[in-house]
């Protein structure tokens, strides 16, 4: 079985820093940032590059800020239309 490799993109401006994703992540790959977003919340960030794309963080997120990607041996059937995904990406680049 090929190694499962995942990643997430976070809409940090919509994040309210509730931390539910942090405890939902089985890999311990996410944490709250020391920085704050425009709303004043410490937003979630990845702290490790070991994401498996399990979706748990996105599932428990009350504000639907997380988009999940997963690359495995087998291609997973796409679950949604993807035309707007690029628009939804909001990454802070300092």
């Amino acid at each position: 079985m090929a190694k499962v490799k995942g990643d997430i993109i976070v809409d940090i401006e919509k994040c309210k820093g509730c931390e539910l994703c942090v405890v939902a992540c089985p890999q311990g790959a996410i944490a709250l940032s020391d920085n704050i977003n425009k709303k004043g919340y410490h937003y979630m960030i990845k702290i490790k590059d070991n994401c498996t794309g399990c979706e748990n963080c996105a599932l428990v997120c009350p504000d639907a800020v997380i988009t999940v990607y997963r690359k495995s041996g087998k291609k997973k059937e796409k679950i949604a239309t993807i035309s707007n995904v690029q628009n939804n990406m909001t990454m802070e680049v300092n």
Partner: peptide, 29 residues
């Protein structure tokens, strides 16, 4: 790592082909 938040973006993974979860279009943005 926390100070370099974008470092981890795996450009080869974050592509439409590997998208497994995004919020529904019916949920207004």
């Amino acid at each position: 790592l926390k100070l370099n938040e974008t470092e981890f973006l795996n450009e080869d993974i974050c592509v439409a082909e590997y998208l497994v979860y995004k919020k529904p279009e019916t949920l207004i943005d």
